[in-house]
Each structure stands twice: as C-alpha cells, then as structure tokens.
Write a protein that binds this DNA or RNA. Sequence first.
DNA 1: CCATTTATACTCTCCTTGAGCATAAGATGG
DNA 2: CCATCTTATGCTCAAGGAGAGTATAAATGG
Lengths: 319, 319
Amino acid sequence: MARSPQKKTSAPASGNAVTADLVAVLVAVTDGTPRIMTIAGGSALPSGPFEFTHRSLQTALRAWVEAQTGHPLGYVEQLYTFADRGRSGDARTPHSVSISYLGLTREDQVGEGFEAHWSGWYDYFPWEDHRAGTPVCLAKMIAPKLKTWAKAAPSPTLQRERWQRCAITFGLDDRDWNEELVLQRYELLYEALLIPEAGRAHDREAPIVPGKPMSADHRRILATGIARLRAKIKYRPVVFELMPAEFTLLQLQRSVEALAGRLVHKQNFRRLIEQQELVEETGAMAADTVGRPAKLFRFRHAVLAERAVAGTKLPLSRT
Amino acid sequence: MARSPQKKTSAPASGNAVTADLVAVLVAVTDGTPRIMTIAGGSALPSGPFEFTHRSLQTALRAWVEAQTGHPLGYVEQLYTFADRGRSGDARTPHSVSISYLGLTREDQVGEGFEAHWSGWYDYFPWEDHRAGTPVCLAKMIAPKLKTWAKAAPSPTLQRERWQRCAITFGLDDRDWNEELVLQRYELLYEALLIPEAGRAHDREAPIVPGKPMSADHRRILATGIARLRAKIKYRPVVFELMPAEFTLLQLQRSVEALAGRLVHKQNFRRLIEQQELVEETGAMAADTVGRPAKLFRFRHAVLAERAVAGTKLPLSRT
DNA sequence: CCATTTATACTCTCCTTGAGCATAAGATGG
DNA sequence: CCATCTTATGCTCAAGGAGAGTATAAATGG
C-alpha cells in the first residue's frame, strides 16, 4: 500500500473473502499429567467458526468455550494465526484463517454432559517428557532417524548443518535439553518426514516416530501452545490457573514439572515461590497423604495487581 | 464443537465469510531513532488484503512488503490478529480480520521511488522515550490526568485499584519504569479516554495526551510491535537485523537504547555482547569519528545456528 | 522402635549483575 | 607541544541470585 495508500480504505474485495475459525488448546493438569481437550477421538483440537457477534476474538473464544464446556475459562491467550488453502487440499476451495488460542482450566471445572475428552499431551509428543530422564524413544528411535536424515543431505556441509540443528533442538551430543523448543522439534520432525502429518504419498513407508498424530495442522498448533505455556510459566504466575483453590507446594511443583516436562529442585522451587510471595498459607494442612503433612497454600491473587512481571536482561543504567 | 465434532469438517458456512488484511509494523533504526514505515501522511501503518496465492501468511507478508519497498525483509514475526466488526463502524458491513506482523529492516535498504515514509515511533508514543530521563510529558501531563481519572472511579477501592494500575504501568510513585509495558500503557490511556482514538462523541473536549494518533487500531498494533520488540531484544539477537553490515559497539548500543527507550551501562553492555560471542572484529576501525577510534564489528551469523537461545527461570534439577 | 516418605530449614559456593575506576587513543584549540 | 575533550576499552568489587547439598521434623505402616 505504500504506492497507493488510498486503496487501504476501499471496500474489501469480495474475491478476498475467507472463513475464520477458532482453534483452542485448552489445558488442564490432573494427577501430574497435562491434558488437552480434544474431539474426534483425540485426533483434533476443538474448533469452530468464529461468530462475529462478539466484540473481540478473545470474548468470542471465551463465550464459545464456555458454551461447549459449561464452565468459565481462566486464562486465555492468542497463539497464532494460520492461513490454509482450504482444508480439502483443493487450491480452489474457500480459504480459511485459523486463529488459535491457548486456554487454561481445570478438568473438574468442565461440566458434565459435555462431550469433552481430555488427552494427555505427551501422547502426542512422547519425546517431550523428560521427567523420568531422557525418554527412550528419543535415544532409541528419534535420534537415529534424525541422523539418517541428516546424512541424506546432498553435501557434507549441509549434512553437518542438519545434524547441528537436530542436536541443538533435541539436546543430542551431550547438549542441554531445552524444553521450550517444542515447536522447533515438531517442525524438524515434519521436515524430516518422520511424522504422519508430513506424509507424502511416495513416502508412506518412511520411518515414523512415536506419538499420536492429529488432523490438519492441529498437532502443530498444540506444539505452539505447549511451547508458549512452557515459556510463560517462567515469568508469569499462570500455573495457578491450573491448580485447585488450595494446594500443597509439592502439588504445585508437580504441576510445573508436568508442564515443563522436567524435574525441578524441590528446595529451590520453594524458595522461589516464597520469595516472590506468590502464595499464602491457608492455615490448614493437607489430609490423607503419605509422609509428613504439608501446609496448604492458596494463590495470592493480589500479586496480579501488585506486579507487572517482566524481567530485564539489558545492563540498564540508573543515571 | 465438543458436542458435535462432525460439524468440524463441514463446509464453511458462507455467512461466516470475512476479509483478511495484513498490517505491518516495519521497523528501522536510523541515527538513534527507531522508525516505522507509514502511509497516509503518517496516520496509518502499511496494510493490504491478503493474497491467498502464497503458501503461508509469512511468505505472503514477505512478498507483499518486498513488492512495496523494493527490498527483502530481514526478520519477520507475527504479532496479533484482530477482528473488527467492519472498519466503517456499521455492524452489518463485511467483517475483517487483521493479521499484524512485525518486520525489521534498514531504512537505506528500501528502494527509491517508493512511497515509503518513515516516522519516528516516539512521535506516536512520546512517553515511551526515557533515554534522557523521564519525559516531561509523563510527569507534567499524563500522570496528573491519570490521577484525575483514578479519582473519578465510583468507590475508594476502585480508585485505589485504578491508581495502582497507573502507577505500575507508568512507573509512578517511585516505581521502576518497565519499558516492556508499551501496550498496557496505551490501553490504559485508551481506557482513561486520554487519547483521540478512544474519543467518544460526548467527550470530544476530554483532556488529551501528547502523541500522534493513527487511524483505526493502528496505534494499538504499533504498541504491540514495540512491546514485542523491546522484549525480544533481550533474549534474541534481533538488533543486528537493524544494523549495517559493520558497526561499532557504541552504534550497536545506541540502537538497543533507541528501541528500549532507555540507556544502558556501556561497559556492561560490551561485556554482555562479548561473552555471548555475538560479534567478531572486522579488523577495520571506524573512520571520521570524534574521540578514540572504535573497532568495527560484524554480527556472527553463525550464532543463529549454534544456539537455541532461551533462558530458564525454573530451578531445574540435574538428576 | 524402625524404615519410609514427605516437609521444611539452612548452608555454601559459583556466577551474574550493577556500578564504578582507570587508562588508552584519537582530535582540537591555544 | 600541551591541556582538554571525547570515545574506547580493560579491570575490579560488592551484592544478589542460582544450583546443589545437608540436616532435621513429622507423619505412616510394619
């Protein structure tokens, strides 16, 4: 429009019309397992057409989810907008724009009588759970297949570059595992044709990596959501949206570990939580537990008003 | 769709059709001033209809920007998707979805003969530039007006809450300034009816805060872009997309300061850059400068392949 | 009572970060 | 040539945070 700014305000060309869909990654954590709401037997994320009767996308999603699940949605955040050339694959069918959202709830909050299914998110990404150490499928299946793929590059330079990417994103060759790279890992496997969604007709028999597939690009959207959430829990108190009103510090820790897919140091975790004053004691103790009873805590909702989060990495000057 | 998953794959309802627009926040830094590409005399961001001839939104935006500006775009990132009930204000006109992007370039890279205008982004957000200390307009105009607005709340509790929000987002009452809260500040001013875009008919004479307005929600989109960029420069080496091929460390520092809107500690900045091995010496020295000549550096593009960035705030356990 | 399990309090070291001092190497004006 | 100004660059130091481990407390089931 730099050439012809006047076009900007012209009526939208009707040939440009598309349909808008909402796709939701609704997350809950139950029994130390992060789960997502799914439909179609776990092969798709809940999605539906966007109704323009709402003021904003955010409110539209909220209303829609609440109608579907019978319960209010806690935290909501937009993830990404994808454009598809028509799901049918035909390049001439109506195009669609999928606007994806991340939402946090609790499983028990979803009303009865709804067809909500909750699937563990590690069913779709088995290689993402490092709580019990590096998953076997990573070392035994994924790494070798990635190596094969890297070696298949046309030149030695490209082979090295491919393997470097693999090693970095999957923490191979003694590199650290980075739990935030969920999307990069998915896309690498996609590129290497190791997952069914990437399947081309001529490659049906290509080596396939474990993990349940999803229709369309839903698993990519899920990967985006997991990555976003794993990043977010580090600087915003969003875990509490997934917790019951009262909880022990260990329960809180288990939820964080479930999301992050790795273990945290218990004492340091408690120190972190306490010095940030995120919780307050309820006065009660946890019942029916093994071992010494733990104090119950609740989230200090006031922190949301008190603080603006953030965190600097720039060497700022005071003067 | 939890109730009726089969609907998911049904043909999109034609009554649901919308138009899709791209809106771009194109940033360059020249002479220590962050600038954005604008049209319509600086009152709007470049925008245009999305052409579905591209594989993805990302490539569509790239192609479109390059056609408009005559030069390839460096870094591109999706910002946010807004739904409008028709720009005309009539609730029955065709709805549109605006997908906004952040793009980084250099001003000199934009070809001649194009109608690109570059406007300093602090023209739109004067209160965001804290490089020379707290801007006068913040203390003299904005803070008092926000105080008035806070006091206008119906109850004492609400008054306190309002003022707390103001104080946190604008760093008032001796709080620290948080340069990342660009969007929150804009939205607060919007809510307080202190900026023209929020203007309601009955309130035309309301106190207005300095800063150039934009049409539609473009200033909000710009605020989103600035906020995203200010956050991003702290953990990804994106500043270099805005730098010439060779630069001195002070030039690099000035660019960061321009974006962040605040000064950094020179020695510590250099320490940070060097220990991260982001740059390498070219061997040459800067010419025609005042003071001791500085070494010229170039960005080590290899870091993009070597590292996966990120940064943990969780007390991870090694076992 | 003992082993087991979890809770909770401290300690200790290393690294990072914020801040400042000191010196080097150019230009400029007298 | 010298004093002075300006920027570049090297180095030190103290405070706080992060990673890791030790020690003790309080429950349970034999």
